[in-house]
Write a protein that binds this DNA or RNA. Sequence first.
DNA 1: CACTTGACCTGTCCGC
DNA 2: TGCGGACAGGTCAAGT
Length: 290
Amino acid sequence: MPELPEVETIRIGLSEHIIGQSIKHVDVLWPKTLNVEHVNDSVIGHAIRDIRRRAKVLIIDLDNGFSMLYHLKMTGQMVLVQAAGNRLAGGHPSPSMAANLPDKSTRVVFEFDSGDQLFFNDQRKFGWIQVVPTAKIDQHSLVRRLGPEPLTVDFTLEGFEAVIKRHPKAPIKAVILDQSTVSGIGNIYADESLHLSKIHPATRSGDLKPIQIKRLYEAIKTIIAAGIARGGTSFAHYVTALGGKGDYLDQARVFNQTGKPCPACGTPIEKIRVAGRGTHICPHCQKAPK
DNA sequence: CACTTGACCTGTCCGC
DNA sequence: TGCGGACAGGTCAAGT
């Protein structure tokens, strides 16, 4: 499930190859993923001017004042196949990177003048692509609700404390998964951040001491930066935009490490349920709230 | 209003 | 082997 570091990795990988390319044709294989009318009106025949990211949303700016917003949700992938047939960029879960595309998970195919093809694959069909005027991205229903990103200056300790005070009864994990608190964190990085700061995910936000809030604030920044530095995770549906697996999960602290020793104390990691989500904790380092 | 649960989907895994 | 059901988890709508 791509979170901020994964989307950032995809952004960097795609930028190297498709900025400047002109879109010749678009095949929409699953209409709920992308509105075909918008494609015909605003996408066909236009070149890619820039590729940006806001939290988990990938933004592809075109040369006509329109942009495409991509949300990969849990199983979305973007795979670039070069005209020569060499898959240089993208992401595909198949053990063999030579698997032919499109496959049954392919929802949209973008074809460039060069012959390069960009496949939007999404097994569970939750992901979407929307075409909006570039100047109105900030007004988009999802984008407008996004809080500060972990690594930008507008994510302040004071602001984080204020949000936490506003949700005293909610488990802290639910608060940091809320994209209006801090944007770009998903289930993996939430568990990792809480473990690094030694806070039990079910702790009610109002019960956190100031020192714990500060530790969590710092841990979020550390964990997200580490994720980006390592090129995202290698979780089930994710492969980096350069075709290799990200390797963050190879050294994940707790996520998907059930039964394995806690990196801090050796106690076996447990899997529990918090805020309706599978949640991984060290029962020794992260004491359950009373 | 604060907070929780279900829906959206498909594929995989587990127990019987 | 087949089958039902739980589970995976981002976001929004609906429920408590």
